[in-house]
């Protein structure tokens, strides 16, 4: 008898199975690519799932125009290296109205530039399935979400009326205009992600590694001054500190942590002694109670 499959081997096989089901059953799938570590893992798994073919669907990045510059460079380089089509969508209505996190606050910014923008893109290209890198261990409302999560024609999630999901028999059937969000990483944890990145040597955005970066401390978060659009408050002076990021989003909304982890082993070592959950660094989750579930119902990933 062969040796039992390891934890990561099982997770990998399950994710590959999920991706193949989508490709076989859906007409026009897309992979939401957010440039973060989870997206990097998801993309790597897609390359495995369809090898020797290239993943037969495009990548979609919903660009809020406030991402770290290093993220955008990494995105373009990755798509070119793998040779996949990359669709970058920006909500031009939001750009016209000058929506941004400093002027409008994180809620409005995220709603307009991320949630509404994503819906625009899905409608524009008529995607009937969209892969997302969300994990069930991230947040309470995600713990109950299906791997194949149905969205109505308005892209809304109805947590009370989800399709039962048994065995590996996923239901991808939709009517015109409706869609499925698919979460191949549902059963992965943050530590699994890092271990897998280490094991597979998957490229990730350098922002995950500690380096001297210009930051200001604001509301208890370390915000990196990534460009000159960031208005400094009286008395604020960016200072160089050794920091890295546990998650990546819009730079004004993503808190850095002080760290000396300059490589993967260092990150994992830090994780093992860490005492805070990864979403703590996200301003958006703290805005309103149960905010994630509310946003998800409205169409956020």
């Amino acid at each position: 008898m062969p040796r039992p499959m390891t934890h990561l081997e099982r997770l990998e096989a399950e994710s590959i199975h999920i991706m193949r089901e989508v490709l076989a059953e859906c007409e026009n799938p897309v992979m939401l690519y957010s440039i973060g570590k989870d997206s990097s893992v998801m993309l790597h798994l897609a390359r495995k799932a369809f090898f020797p073919s290239k993943p037969p669907f495009p990548l979609l990045h919903v660009d809020t125009t406030w991402k770290f510059r290093e993220m955008i460079e990494f995105r373009d380089r990755t798509a070119a290296d793998i040779g996949m089509d990359l669709i970058v969508h920006i909500n031009q209505d939001g750009v016209r109205d000058g929506v941004g996190p400093f002027t409008h606050g994180s809620q409005v910014h995220t709603d307009v530039m991320k949630t509404q923008s994503l819906k625009q893109a899905l409608d524009k290209y008529q995607f009937d399935a969209a892969f997302g890198g969300a994990r069930r261990d991230e947040e309470k409302s995600r713990a109950k979400e299906r791997v194949f999560s149905f969205r109505n024609a308005q892209h809304r999630w109805d947590p009370k009326n989800q399709r039962p999901e048994l065995w590996h028999l996923y239901n991808s059937r939709v009517r015109k205009g409706e869609s499925i969000r698919v979460f191949p990483l549902s059963n992965w944890t943050e530590l699994d992600i890092w271990q897998y990145i280490h094991q597979e040597n998957i490229p990730i955005v350098p922002l995950y590694f500690a380096r001297e970066r210009p930051v200001v401390e604001r509301n208890g978060m370390l915000i990196m001054v990534d460009d000159d659009r960031m208005p400094l408050e009286p008395g604020e002076q960016p200072e160089m500190r050794m920091v890295r990021f546990r998650t990546l989003g819009c730079y004004p909304l993503t808190g850095a942590i002080e760290s000396t982890a300059t490589d993967l082993a260092g990150i994992i070592e830090e994780m093992l002694v860490t005492r805070t959950s990864e979403r703590q660094g996200r301003a958006i989750d703290h805005d309103a109670s149960a905010s994630m579930e509310k946003k998800k119902q409205e169409g956020y990933f």
Partner: peptide, 19 residues
């Protein structure tokens, strides 16, 4: 206290875990 001697040996042990 659960952190092992070196991170490499830790990862090796992790990699062999079943679910």
């Amino acid at each position: 206290q659960a952190a092992p001697q070196t991170i490499e040996s830790y990862l090796e042990a992790q990699a062999a875990k079943t679910t």
